[in-house]
Amino acid sequence: MITLITGGSKCGKSRYAEDILTGFDGRRIYVAAMQPYGEEAHEAIARHRRLRAGKGFETIERYTDIGELQLPQGCAVLLECVGNLCANEMFRDGKMYRPADKISAEIQLLAARAEELVIVTNQVGSDGISYTEGTAAYMAEMEKINRSIAVSADCVIECVYGIPLVLKGALPCSGR
């Protein structure tokens, strides 16, 4: 089962995603895509670690190429988050790539191995600001990935200041 959780920045998406998997009876694997560069990234990572401490997750740091992850069959996976993964795949080796199709395909590989896949993403296209080419392309790739995941997801949830709104399917039972 695939659950996609979207919404604005700092709106309780991660906490909600973790809570969905708290009731899962099996190995819970947290795939962290944020690269630990800079003070703010360190703070964000530390905050996320505190948030999921004691919730029974094994953490794998994986910044690109998530399709190559070796996962035990039947585990639960929490992928956090598409925004970082997309930026990591898009801007590397001093070049700009268009990774939406690659990431969408790799997410399907994860979904085939995991019993439960919960994906945290971000809405990035709603601030009404016209950005320069690289950022505009990033927004386009992000929303393309989001649309693609939503098609195959069983459940799509938008978090609004911590309140889950169901956009597709039904709330996962442990996330009520």
């Binding site: 919404g7 604005g8 920045s9 709106c11 971000n122 990035v124 709603s126 601030d127 950022t135």
Partner: peptide
């Protein structure tokens, strides 16, 4: 609701967001 955009370049804007 102000969080549904890309991460601001200005640190003060990121803190506010």
């Amino acid at each position: 609701e102000i969080g549904c955009g890309v991460i601001p370049l200005e640190k003060s804007e990121r803190i506010w967001r």
